[in-house]
Amino acid sequence: MWTVPNIITLFRVVLIPVFVIVYFLDWRWAHEAGAFIFWLAAITDWFDGYLARKLKQSTPFGAFLDPVADKLIVAAALLMITHTYATLWITIPAIILLIREVYVSALREWMSSQGVRELVQVSFIGKAKTMAQMLALIGLLSGLETFMGFPIFWVSLGYILLYAAAILSLWSMCSYTIAASKHLTGKV
């Protein structure tokens, strides 16, 4: 259980309350610091998977905890940006992303119980959605439009990427549902 990748994943779980607390501190750079902590968590997500494969330290506990850690921190970030921006333009794609995460997790669990989880394994579309989602959340959490007087448009890019992630999210959800349809309807 105490492999390097699992320790990194547990670190990501521990970062969640730190991320939330820092983001809501009454401090000038709180949002930027919160976005940095979220970025750090996103990097550790890639890093723990890489190390698990490279060091051949994949474990059932890590296979369970990694997606849970991802979903927890992303759900927290989505709730935080809906609170911060308080607009339907953020809330609607955030809800789409949350619905997709719950739906696909349940679909994968059910397909696993049927012995055919491989039909709904992570696809390229799912990975593209995750990348767009993470970058969108970093941009929106940071609230930065300029840095040291230079325009960087992180928030504007965050909006665009959030919508791209929502579209990819719906696309991947439909793809997984189609792949699982025979099993869902009992027509196997």
Rank of each mutant, 00 (worst) to 15 (best):
T3N: 13
V4K: 12
P5T: 09
N6R: 11
N6F: 07
I8D: 00
L10M: 12
F11I: 13
V13R: 15
V13G: 15
I16V: 15
F19N: 09
I21T: 15
V22Q: 14
R28L: 14
A30E: 10
H31F: 10
E32G: 15
F38Q: 04
W39L: 13
A42W: 02
A42D: 00
T44A: 04
K54A: 08
S58W: 15
P60G: 03
F61L: 14
G62I: 01
L65T: 05
L65P: 06
D70Y: 03
K71F: 02
L72H: 12
L72M: 12
A77K: 03
A77W: 01
L79C: 14
L79D: 10
T84M: 11
A86F: 02
T91V: 10
P93W: 02
I95S: 06
V102P: 02
V102D: 01
V102C: 06
Y103A: 05
Y103C: 04
S105G: 14
R108K: 02
S112H: 07
S113P: 06
Q114N: 07
V116R: 13
F124K: 08
F124V: 08
I125W: 13
G126C: 06
K127T: 05
A128F: 06
K129E: 01
L135M: 08
L135R: 00
L140F: 00
S142D: 04
G143Y: 00
E145R: 05
F150V: 01
P151F: 02
V155S: 00
Y159H: 08
I160Y: 12
L161A: 00
A164E: 06
A164C: 09
A164G: 03
A166G: 03
A166Q: 02
L168R: 05
L170D: 09
W171F: 12
S175Y: 06
T177I: 13
T177G: 15
I178Q: 00
S181K: 14
K182Q: 14
H183V: 09
